[in-house]
């Protein structure tokens, strides 16, 4: 499987009253290629409103660009035939920013996982599907008993976001499009999340487009980085190079605006799961009333 995602000259305009010409250009001439070989993390960093989410929506086929193309395996994603579309959907999957809005409040959280099982034909029987779901929850350090059968508002943000990761684990897409997946999580859960993502890259060969406005996260993930400013990608390269020798003034500005401008100080050590469950999960008394979120 060596299909790539290839953006060329993607431009996205939105109608906007009051803006010059009656439209707003969210993304201008975005071109880049995501290759699954070797599996890698490509970060896309920029300020709020710079067009990051718009690019993610373009790549995910949720928004058709005004001009330019998004290709998967060399074909425009908006012109795929049935089989190609299935292949594209299976291999390009998102993790969204807001762990609260990603679940329909009407249903239990299991539904998101069962939907994946059914829509992508991951299992032939209910038992097989359940085994799959439980294995994937394990893989993201969630206790199936604590998650299955619950409503979204009964889970914490970190738990919900890891349910989304469990969904990714089930689907094993070649590409994960992660749009600020950790911006609403606290530091501890954030690291756990990033580590799981890196594990996925290593174990299942997933390539991640990681969108963020936070340079320390970019640094932690490594790989390469693209800097976007006002809809334009202004700089790209390996993280170490871009962070140490930024060539574009905007990148320098971004670097300077980090409160603790010491990129040499990597976060040390990986967070241990036991440590986390010891402090955060097992430490909390078991939730008795179903309305009480855990953690």
């Amino acid at each position: 499987m060596t299909k790539t995602i290839e953006l060329s000259g993607v431009q996205q305009r939105f109608h906007a009253r009051g803006a010059a010409g009656g439209y707003l250009t969210a993304v201008e001439d975005a071109s880049f290629t995501l290759s699954p070989e070797p599996p890698q993390v490509v970060s896309l960093v920029g300020q709020s409103g710079s067009g990051k989410s718009t690019i993610a929506r373009n790549v995910l086929g949720l928004q058709k660009p005004t001009s330019g193309t998004v290709k998967y395996g060399g074909k425009d994603i908006f012109k795929l035939n049935r089989d190609e579309y299935d292949d594209y959907r299976r291999n390009v999957q998102p993790v969204f920013q807001d762990p609260y809005a990603i679940f329909n409040p009407f249903y239990r959280v299991d539904r998101v996982l069962w939907k994946a099982v059914k829509k992508f034909g991951l299992a032939t029987s209910r038992a097989e599907g359940l085994a799959l779901i439980e294995r994937s929850l394990d893989a993201v350090k969630l206790d199936p008993d604590r998650v299955l059968g619950r409503y979204p508002h009964q889970l914490s943000g970190g738990q919900r976001q890891r349910v989304m990761l469990a969904r990714i684990h089930m689907l094993r897409p070649a590409f994960v499009i992660a749009d600020e997946p950790v911006s609403m999580l606290d530091a501890q859960v954030r690291r756990l999340f990033l580590d799981i993502l890196l594990d996925f890259q290593r174990e299942y060969g997933m390539t991640t487009l990681f969108i963020t406005h936070d340079l320390s996260t970019v640094y932690y993930l490594g790989g390469s980085v693209m800097v976007i400013n006002r809809g334009r990608i202004v700089e790209r390269g390996p993280v170490d190079v871009v962070m140490h020798e930024p060539s574009h003034p905007y990148t320098r500005l971004l670097l300077d605006s980090i409160p603790q401008p010491d990129p040499d100080q990597r976060w040390t050590g990986r967070i241990e799961v036991d440590e986390l469950s010891g402090t955060a999960e097992a430490g909390t008394p078991k939730a008795t009333a179903p309305e009480t979120p855990i953690i």
């Binding site: 949720l62 998102p94 969204f96 920013q97 990603i102 329909n104 249903y107």
Partner: peptide, 26 residues
Amino acid sequence: SRPYVDLARVSKARDLEIIVTELLPN
């Protein structure tokens, strides 16, 4: 424009299915 509608779309749900199962109950 809720994210769960986007999630349904990338999970290959059709328009009618999204209307009936994601929007209608709410």
